Simulated assay, not measured.
Amino acid sequence: MPITPEQCHAGRVLAKIDREELATEIGVHVDVIEAYEAGLASDGEIAQLAQRSLESLGVEFLPEESGFGVGVRLKVDRAGARQIGSWEAEGGRVAEDDVP
């Protein structure tokens, strides 16, 4: 399920990026992000691209459950998200690390 415009805005705030940076990251003009967040354009593809980009920065989107509504939280900070991404990109088989 794609994120809402409000979740996109809140996710950007938590990730500490502006509309221009998100637009550059997902390859669209900043006006597209602005229109989406303002609720003037409902584009599922933009929502999915924005969600993936923000999740890579440590933002977690929470689905509606038991009448509490949707939410957004920061799973890890930006530096932590990038470090995890580099660890995941190392390759190799699971359990090949030299960890006792």
Results as ranks from 00 to 15, higher is better:
15 A>N: 03
86 S>Q: 12
75 K>Y: 13
70 V>G: 07
7 Q>L: 07
13 V>S: 08
72 V>N: 10
27 G>I: 00
88 E>M: 14
31 D>H: 11
4 T>S: 13
54 L>Y: 12
44 G>D: 12
93 R>H: 11
60 E>N: 13
90 E>P: 00
49 L>Q: 12
32 V>S: 14
20 E>N: 06
55 E>W: 08
19 R>A: 11
61 F>W: 05
28 V>S: 03
51 Q>R: 14
87 W>A: 15
100 P>S: 03
1 M>S: 13
61 F>N: 10
48 Q>N: 07
84 I>G: 05
74 L>M: 07
87 W>N: 08
29 H>A: 14
58 G>E: 03
77 D>L: 00
9 H>L: 15
70 V>A: 15
21 E>R: 09
91 G>L: 06
26 I>W: 02
42 S>A: 13
89 A>R: 15
51 Q>A: 13
42 S>L: 10
44 G>F: 04
32 V>Y: 06
21 E>V: 12
54 L>E: 10
83 Q>T: 08
14 L>W: 02
5 P>N: 06
2 P>K: 00
3 I>W: 00
68 F>N: 09
4 T>K: 01
21 E>Q: 15
78 R>Y: 06
32 V>N: 11
23 A>I: 04
43 D>C: 07
8 C>I: 04
48 Q>F: 10
86 S>T: 12
96 E>G: 12
47 A>T: 00
55 E>I: 07
63 P>G: 03
56 S>E: 05
53 S>Q: 06
91 G>N: 10
56 S>L: 14
59 V>Y: 07
65 E>H: 11
35 A>W: 02
94 V>M: 12
100 P>F: 05
48 Q>C: 02
39 G>V: 03
85 G>F: 10
62 L>C: 05
56 S>M: 11
96 E>W: 11
91 G>V: 11
93 R>W: 11
81 A>G: 03
10 A>T: 10
59 V>M: 08
57 L>A: 08
59 V>A: 07
100 P>R: 13
14 L>P: 01
27 G>L: 00
33 I>V: 09
45 E>G: 02
60 E>F: 15
1 M>D: 13
6 E>K: 14
51 Q>C: 11
44 G>N: 08
